[in-house]
Design a protein around this nucleic acid. Sequence first.
DNA 1: AATGAATGAGCTTTCATTCAT
DNA 2: GATGAATGAAAGCTCATTCAT
Lengths: 219, 219, 219, 219
Amino acid sequence: MLIFLEKNKNLTRKERERLLKRFEILDVAANLFATKGFDGTKLEDIAEASEFGKGTLYNYFENKEDIYVEIINRITDDYLSELKKISTKSKTLCEFISQLIDYLVEFVAVDRSAFLMLLRLRTEMNAIEKVRKSKVIKNYRIEATKIFKSKINLAIKNKEIEKINPDHFVILFRNLTFPYFHSILIMKNKSRSVLQTKKDLVEAGNFIVATLFNGISKR
Amino acid sequence: MLIFLEKNKNLTRKERERLLKRFEILDVAANLFATKGFDGTKLEDIAEASEFGKGTLYNYFENKEDIYVEIINRITDDYLSELKKISTKSKTLCEFISQLIDYLVEFVAVDRSAFLMLLRLRTEMNAIEKVRKSKVIKNYRIEATKIFKSKINLAIKNKEIEKINPDHFVILFRNLTFPYFHSILIMKNKSRSVLQTKKDLVEAGNFIVATLFNGISKR
Amino acid sequence: MLIFLEKNKNLTRKERERLLKRFEILDVAANLFATKGFDGTKLEDIAEASEFGKGTLYNYFENKEDIYVEIINRITDDYLSELKKISTKSKTLCEFISQLIDYLVEFVAVDRSAFLMLLRLRTEMNAIEKVRKSKVIKNYRIEATKIFKSKINLAIKNKEIEKINPDHFVILFRNLTFPYFHSILIMKNKSRSVLQTKKDLVEAGNFIVATLFNGISKR
Amino acid sequence: MLIFLEKNKNLTRKERERLLKRFEILDVAANLFATKGFDGTKLEDIAEASEFGKGTLYNYFENKEDIYVEIINRITDDYLSELKKISTKSKTLCEFISQLIDYLVEFVAVDRSAFLMLLRLRTEMNAIEKVRKSKVIKNYRIEATKIFKSKINLAIKNKEIEKINPDHFVILFRNLTFPYFHSILIMKNKSRSVLQTKKDLVEAGNFIVATLFNGISKR
DNA sequence: AATGAATGAGCTTTCATTCAT
DNA sequence: GATGAATGAAAGCTCATTCAT
């Protein structure tokens, strides 16, 4: 909240309020989209959950698709900028991957609906034209791949890892982490405290890193 | 076809015809569900593609959900029985995984829509109550996990692999393979022959096995 | 009805029935559009009046605009073909105008809603994109003007009428007749029998012809 | 403006300001109604164009209908009073008609939106209850007809014109002039200067008078 | 058994009107 | 007085399901 106020100092009170309300709607909508998907989420659901009238939503967004796209754009944007930070900070590939996984653990714990939406993204893209055409998302994919590949190539050069096909590893990592974490979330969903969930995620993260780098074979 | 006739010897001609028509509908529907998702597929689409009237579909299935659920049930059933076969045949975990991946490569190549539906399954489950409640699917998950775990535990006992948490590996494997193969399919979608696709899948399969067992670290 | 059957001999029973239902809907819709205008006519109104469900209308027409456009297209088409007939039959301009007015009187009496829709056409065009873009309507305007102008030019050549600007007369005639007849219809709307209405229209038609050709000045 | 001040001398400053703002709104709204029609004009459009808030409009008018009705009332009032003036000034019917047409030419040129609204009036009346019930409009129609008829009857008595049915001529004139002028406006809409438009209107007016009084037949 | 015309509940979206500020 | 955010009734349209043929 303080960050929000800081960032938007130069706006009028009205404008800030408007932004805050947009946030609220996006937040509520993200939760719904995350659990029910795009088609499963009715505009009325968003209205009710955000405690606005149906019509009011249209004062803040052009239509349902736009709400969805804006959420996805924000999420991918955030994720990309974090990726860049971690990329700069880390030296070895192993460090990079470890830190990224730490971030993802945090991410899943803090904003589960964002996580779920990213998880669904590939599937939903088919149904939502504007998502398919979103420049932000296209850019995110391209940039993220670039960062990963440069890290891998460097690691190969530095003899940190074997000579592998960078593309393969990028795909593998991307497809592994998100669904893996998701499984953790849903498998033990009911009987678990928030704390335990986090512990499980951390453990899962460690397992992923260990397996990717050393394999499971007896050495 | 011969297998079908063999299996249903004891049925009357009418009954066999009825079953065959059900198959046709399920086949066509699977293709549509696979590419467009449950909500994106209209009953009219299925009717057109299967060259039946819309009303006719209701002579074979209670409703749209039922068609979906039956497809998923069949796919998971098939997959589970194959899993059992491979489990019996294979000695080491590595063998088991390798053979399973070979099967999956084949599976993706031969029945892509079944593959795509399994891929979507987790997401669609939220939207389709009957899928969530399907006993077949629940059983599939339980049995598959059981097979995997026993294989892993055996491998640990035989010192084939390190002492890992079997649950973790099951999840990792499951979440890795399907999305990974999917990425292969869509990434190079346009410029590739069927043959090349298969080659890519085989290569991807090898990479997965290699990484899982040996990791990517320089040895 | 007999004409309809004759025309569509080669169609199947189903196809004929479908066409008949389309007619019914168009007929009912024309009545509503004629009195309430495009915006004032709700789809539900058409559904109720035609005794179909809302959804059924969409089995026959793409959307509300399409219903409107098809009606207008049919009306202008009919009117144009009649115009051509009269043009061929008549020798002098006076004959042409007289016969045309006779036809219009008939037209107003027989299909009042068609008449009213033509009357509104210019105004509605602004609101309905498909009407504005309709080739049928454009063609109708061009052809009708052409016919009128050639008749006038001939009359001038034959010294039947003074040297007037043909464009002016076309506009004058077009803008005069329809609103004039409309006034007749609404002015005495309530207290009049159908027969009397027709008599009034005939009288009005005579007055128009007399005035246009001879003026009202004392000779 | 001076006239306005003069007329409302006895009002307080506040009251005068209020009236002026009402004028502004009406003026802007008339423009919109004239081009887009009643349904096509959104209250928001009027608010934006008049540079008032949407809510403010409701301080000056009860609702959208009222704005429309007041505009129409004013226009018909003005037109009626001018009609009376011209009626008094003119001696023969021909003079009366000529002067009236001169006035209409001016009217079209000066306040096109008023002209367009009058043109649409008959059609819009069906949709807007308050217009249908407006006493001002009813009175306008009655009075205007009265003036015309007395002029015509006088002309007949003075042997200026043939013995015609006054009602017929009133209707004819009313329905002729407005749509005719409208055609002039839209037909040459794009390629013409304001000056040329006026010239065209004058010419059209002359043609109308000539035709009405002398007809087009060769003498 | 096969059909597809008919249906209406349910969806997204619009917009005149209200009302707290 | 002035405002525009909030509202929800009402609109057009979709589509799973029914049912007479």
